[in-house]
Nucleic acid binder design. Structure first.
Lengths: 202, 202
DNA sequence: CGCGTAATTCATCATGTGTTGAATAATGCT
DNA sequence: AGCATTATTCAACACATGATGAATTACGCG
């Protein structure tokens, strides 16, 4: 009922990457409960650590959040995911494939969920989401949208659909979308997204 | 700084619909801050009322939330909105028009935002959202989807796009989608949504 | 008019929160 | 070996929250 873990005070033996574990725990808990719902104590518990240690490393809750969101938005993952998509495919298919590449894996999903959930309740996180969509998503998608009339608008509409998909599939878990296979999703969504590109030239 | 409103205890004069004002305030505050972020005190303040009165009428916070979400999902608004759409238009255009009919008006937007924001943080609200999407949205959209292969899946994909649009336009407020006119949005989105219907017969 | 009942506020509680400062234990430099 | 530094926990604070019970004021029925 009360405290389950009891390790007496003082430094641990060895050189464990406690800071990293706290960051990982933060991403998980922020992802599950959003900024407000994620308590420092819950994050500390998930990292098997005293709450004070979290503050020792990151100072404040907001700084911890920012730190937890910083790394995973390094372009690496996303760039890889885009590259590994079928090269000849249309922009619609590449988009949904990239999307599933990130969201399909729980490790990649956690920070996204954290950002999405938190953006609904805190302007700070909303600003982060804006930046993320602008840079990571649009920045790359727009490479294929140069010279397209209303390119930004159309790319953003695509992104909005993907966000809605994320919510229905991974947050609200509405059937049948929540359980449909990735291949079926691609087949269903890709041509529709593609329309945002093709539709510009009519 | 401290308390601004000071009305001493006891019943008020006249017969004000305080219960209704509390409900309206609840929808607003839940819409702005989500379930967790909306405090009883903030709702009470928005209704110019003591927090205890809110409990007196609704018992618990969750009951208040459910009460606040109950009325506005009466089919009336949505049905009207659908009817007032161009009758001959395709299902894609009707969908986005209905969507804008509800979300365009702050009064209709508040409970939607409340539901959406809260669904991100509480399973109770997520369940409500599922019900709402299933009944109100899909229930009506599916009227046009009878006999369509994968009808539910396609209708749900449409709904997911609309939810994503709501988040980008009204929550995250990403430009240019946040400021684009309703007519431009319709022109942009309607044919893409329509694809979810047309695409079933290829 | 008198009185039960409904509407409203006040004061208070237990709990959970973010945060801080001091205490304790291991590490690494010299 | 000695000692500053780092990692870690403990104990506590100030504050906000949801909730409750008693007190106060008005309404409406007889």
């Amino acid at each position: 009922m009360g405290k389950v873990l009891k390790g007496r005070a003082g430094r641990r033996r060895g050189a464990p990457d406690t800071k990293g574990e706290i960051l990982a725990a933060a991403r998980t808990v922020f992802g599950e409960r959003g900024y407000d719902g994620a308590t420092m104590r819950a994050i500390a518990a998930a990292a098997s650590v005293d709450p004070a240690l979290v503050h020792h490393y990151f100072g404040t809750k907001e700084k911890l959040f920012l730190a937890a969101m910083e790394i995973p938005f390094d372009p690496a993952v996303i760039a890889d995911s885009i590259a590994s998509s079928a090269a000849g495919a249309g922009i619609g298919e590449r988009a949904i494939r990239t999307f599933l590449g990130v969201w399909g894996d729980p490790a990649g999903r956690a920070p996204m969920l954290a950002l999405l959930r938190s953006a609904m309740q805190h302007e700070t996180a909303a600003r982060l989401l804006r930046q993320f969509v602008s840079r990571a998503i649009l920045g790359r998608v727009l490479v294929g949208f140069e010279g397209v009339p209303n390119g930004v608008l159309r790319a953003e509409a695509m992104a909005s659909h993907l966000i809605g998909l994320a919510i229905i599939r991974y947050v609200v878990k509405l059937e049948p979308i929540a359980s449909v296979s990735e291949d079926e999703l691609i087949e269903l969504v890709a041509p529709v997204l593609q329309q945002y590109y093709d539709g510009a030239f009519e």
